[in-house]
Every structure is written in C-alpha cells, then in structure tokens.
C-alpha cells in the first residue's frame, strides 16, 4: 500500500476536526471534533509504525497511550461540561465568557474611573465591579431561557 493513502486520509480527517472545533458551538460537539483529530493522529502513527517496521512498535504503543489518554480526557471533559451546565444552564462555548476582556470603551471607562478614584478618594469605590456582575447575571438569565 502506498504510504500516501493513510497519510492523506489522516490529514483530511484532521482538517475536518479542525473545522468542527472552530465552528461548533456546543461543547460536546467540540469534544467530538477533538476525538476526530486524535484519531487522525492515531492513523498516522499506525501507518508509520507499519511502514518503518519498528522493532519496538513505538507507533502502536503510542497509539494505545493516545487512546487511553483520550478516554481520560473525554471523561474529565464531560464532568466539567456537566458541572458548567448545572451552574450556568447552558453548554454553549459562546456563552462562557466570564473571563473575556470587556470592549475597549468599557476598559478605558474603567481605567478612567480608576484614575478618578486614585485622584480623589471619593464615593465610587464599588463602581467598577458592578458592570461585570450585572453582565454575568444577564448571561445566566439568557442561558436559563434557552435551557
């Protein structure tokens, strides 16, 4: 068999997995795409192990390890997904944006208020955390509506 056949198939499967990871919104579909990418790598490992006639069978051993690690990864990943779903009511990647930076205007506004607070020790001590919490509550309510 030509080595190009399994290599090209692995490349195409990997690209399909890349598309799925980037384009999907549900976390579980993203995990499925990750599995596709791992399987593409496994196919490459097996093909090159058979081609090189490795006496240690490094490729097949590494394939078994990748399969086991992928099983562990899917277990932990699904536990995390279930925890996120229980806390947020959604499993969409797009809605989990608590750690994102705010828009540029909001950042400069926070910087300005911070500068104002620094300039004069006045009233607005709890002014900056408010937008964050209200935004998170909005995200939660949106998730609950779709759930």
């Amino acid at each position: 068999m030509h080595l190009a056949y399994p290599a090209v198939l692995a490349v195409l499967l990997f690209s399909v997995g890349v598309y799925g990871v980037l384009a999907r919104r549900n976390v579980i579909l993203v995990l499925m795409s990750v599995e596709l990418m791992l399987n593409a790598v496994n196919l490459n490992l097996v093909a090159f192990d058979v081609w090189l006639r490795d006496t240690l069978h490094t490729g097949q051993a590494l394939t078994l390890f990748v399969i086991a690690v992928a099983a562990a990864e899917i277990g932990i990943g699904l536990a995390i997904v279930l925890m996120v779903y229980r806390d947020r009511g959604t499993s969409d990647v797009d809605r989990l944006r608590d750690l994102r930076e705010d828009r540029a205007g909001a950042v400069t506004e926070a910087a300005v208020t911070g500068a104002a607070v620094a300039a004069g020790p006045g009233t607005a001590s709890g002014g900056t955390p408010h937008p964050h919490t209200s935004e998170r509550e909005q995200g939660n309510s949106a998730g609950r509506q779709t759930a």
Partner: peptide
C-alpha cells in the same frame, strides 16, 4: 439551529487552508 457558531466561514477557511497545505 444554533449548533454552529458565527465564525463558521473563518473555520471553513482555516480548515481548507490546513487541508490544502498538509495534503
């Protein structure tokens, strides 16, 4: 209907580019 996120064209472009390069 919301299974795909909004960056689907970008994802398609990235996947096609990587597929073409790697093939």
């Amino acid at each position: 209907p919301d299974a795909d996120s909004g960056n689907r064209p970008v994802a398609l472009a990235v996947a096609l580019a990587s597929a073409a390069t790697l093939v």
